[in-house]
């Protein structure tokens, strides 16, 4: 009884608080949103600028500058970036690296994450820390030995080197997220399947994988974005133009098109479209992945 009263009291207090806020704050609310809009516009200016520049001809940019609103929307820069700037080849290379590296790094993470959460053995926690430690270290530390290794393997200046790198460097985050996900799946499910005669491979592929779709979605968005956006490894391991990924292609475009700002921005837009699409359609998973571990519980 007292509990209900206390509850009602609080509800009443909250309700009056809410109406207070609504009455006293209509004008401040408008000011708040005007200020917020200005901040949003300032914050988005860099992205909007690139989009605007990509839609203007070189002559128009020379006349009114990169940042002005285009008079008519022209797609000539996009055509030029595709034909003269090799955008098609760069984008194809990026996909050739990103798709297999994303899938395989997650698959290896599934194997490690499942084993370290459900098939625990002495030392499995230490092994988990060993896997996750890789998350913290700047990849630059391994740069020179890997440069040498790929030279010795004959994989320098091939996309294979990038695929292998991104599989290996993806293992820590994939193991971390999947281990924690599998740990939350009730062990009773696994035990019931064992009684039914299933082996670990069957349990993993038929039982655990379907359950882990949300975690797989989180990892796919994260891995795809990171691998696609990577710049360091192709700078180090790729030399020839036809092997470049789109990020390095973008940076190398400056020479040939050093003042063709419209073509440069069209290339920047091309380079960003795949990750932006992933971001727009899977934002929920992307954000969940980014905030993973930051909130307790």
């Amino acid at each position: 009884m007292t509990k209900t009263i206390a509850h009602n009291d609080r509800r009443a207090a909250t309700a009056s608080l809410a109406s207070d806020r609504a009455q006293s704050s209509r004008v401040p609310m408008i000011i708040f949103y005007v200020l917020l809009t200005i901040i949003v516009l300032m914050y988005s200016a860099p992205s909007i600028g690139v989009l605007l520049a990509s839609l203007k001809s070189t002559a128009e940019i020379a006349e009114v500058g990169v940042w002005a609103i285009p008079r008519s929307f022209e797609l000539t820069n996009y055509v030029e970036a595709w034909n003269g700037g090799n955008a098609g080849i760069y984008i194809r290379n990026s996909f050739f690296v990103t798709i297999p590296a994303t899938i395989i790094s997650i698959s290896l993470g599934v194997l490690a994450g499942y084993t370290l959460s459900k098939l625990k053995f002495r030392g499995s926690n230490a092994l988990f820390i060993f896997f996750v430690a890789g998350l913290f270290f700047p990849p630059q530390i391994a740069l020179i030995p890997l440069f040498r290794l790929f030279n010795d393997l004959g994989l320098y200046d091939t996309l294979w080197s990038l695929i292998l790198i991104h599989i290996a460097f993806g293992i820590p985050i994939c193991t971390l997220i999947l281990k924690n996900f599998f740990a939350a799946v009730p062990t009773a499910i696994r035990e019931a399947a064992i009684i039914d005669g299933a082996n670990e491979w069957q349990i993993l592929t038929r039982l655990m994988l379907p359950l882990s779709l949300p975690a797989l979605a989180v990892l796919t968005t994260l891995q795809f974005t990171w691998i696609w956006n990577d710049f360091l490894w192709p700078v180090i391991l790729i030399r020839s133009d036809e092997m470049r990924t789109v990020m390095v292609g973008l940076a190398s475009l400056k020479g040939q098109y050093s003042v063709a700002y419209g073509v440069q921005s069209a290339m920047a837009v091309y380079a960003s479209i795949p990750t932006l699409l992933v971001f727009v359609f899977f934002q929920r998973y992307f954000i969940r992945g980014l905030t993973f571990g930051s909130v307790k519980g």
């Binding site: 690139v50 696609w228 956006n229 710049f231 390095v248 940076a251 960003s272």
Partner: peptide
């Protein structure tokens, strides 16, 4: 900006 590459 999170979705954009640092190179971009």
């Amino acid at each position: 900006p999170i979705a954009l590459a640092l190179a971009v």
